[in-house]
Nucleic acid binder design. Sequence first.
DNA 1: CCGTGGTAACTTACTCAAAAGTCATATGAG
DNA 2: CTCATATGACTTTTGAGTAAGTTACCACGG
Lengths: 204, 204
Amino acid sequence: MARAKAGTKGVPRLERESQMLEVASEIFGNEGYAATNIQVVAERAGISKPLIYNYFGSKEGLFLACLDRAGTIVADEIERIARGDAVGIERGLRTLEGMFTILEPQPYLWKLFYDPTAPSTGAVADAIDHYTQRIAKLADEGVAELMGLAGNTDPVDISAMTALWLGIVDSLMNWWMEHPDESADAMMQRCVRLLSALLGDSRQ
Amino acid sequence: MARAKAGTKGVPRLERESQMLEVASEIFGNEGYAATNIQVVAERAGISKPLIYNYFGSKEGLFLACLDRAGTIVADEIERIARGDAVGIERGLRTLEGMFTILEPQPYLWKLFYDPTAPSTGAVADAIDHYTQRIAKLADEGVAELMGLAGNTDPVDISAMTALWLGIVDSLMNWWMEHPDESADAMMQRCVRLLSALLGDSRQ
DNA sequence: CCGTGGTAACTTACTCAAAAGTCATATGAG
DNA sequence: CTCATATGACTTTTGAGTAAGTTACCACGG
């Protein structure tokens, strides 16, 4: 008798891991670290809580694994685009396009790096720092280039503009999450329209 | 003997309430709802935890009161500016100026409405909804005006642009929170510079 | 082709700490 | 003297983390 449904279900470790990571990333991204309940992650993944601890050690460990997965996906893509030859506004649009394409099935990944409730010390903080630095560095390059073309080389202005740019990406991701029917391509076209509306009106 | 320091301290109820609300708003805004500990709020306000419960009933009740206070401050200001006669980009800049001025001593108030860890049901959710709707409605008017000038009247584009605009405000607030030496006026001038850099480069 | 042991995958049923929330009581202002 | 203001010391709840054991797959000897 005893434990009704214990025992392996024949799912290999790696497969279970990515299955857990997908579910966990979605919940962490949508609810935030602090508001995420491991029990809920387990239920939605169709497994038990201890299995998560067995595989990832702790809530932080699970979050860290999510960060690494998402960070690689996102930062690699931005780096790939940065190596292209677009400059100024064009580079910004190319970057957006890449983000939309890569985050089409999972826009919440972006949120993992900008979660104010994530632990602010330890390995998690280090990982967040690592990936956001990597992203911010590339953004900063693009922004400095854009600002330079307009004759502004003030580093503080560039820092503010970079924050603004990352905030713009963030807002677009949020809006997108609320409009899931929108395809990556449609998002991209919309951005172009928004930009031209902004520029079209701008000189009174 | 017994309770060393119990008993009234002669502070009238209303004064204590706003004192608690100020402290609580700062912590809720900076740490987020989920990560906020009522005990800590009490300590920082120099009073005991039960007094908070006596006055506000629950953590949610306290948060709700913070929302009402901040919502009134922010929405009233935006409404005041909307009644002015600036249009297009100019209206946006005036709104930013108003936000910077009013949030100069307490930029974290803004964060209360965009806290992903706040309860997503009940009175708190209703209040958040109420104030963000109120803010979004005004933003939407301004954005529709701007887009109209550029010949774009698509409501979905307007919705996206509104989200973008609110995100821009949010980013600027966040950047400002990380650069507390900056005065409201300096922030304003910086925004004008950023805008002109963006527009200056824009037509290849 | 059939046991049989070893190991990886898995769960139930707990412990424990932190933080929300309550109660009984104290004390100073009017 | 009294009651709104205030607190120390609880109880309760929630959720992270763990101990101990169960079951299925699989290699290998017969």
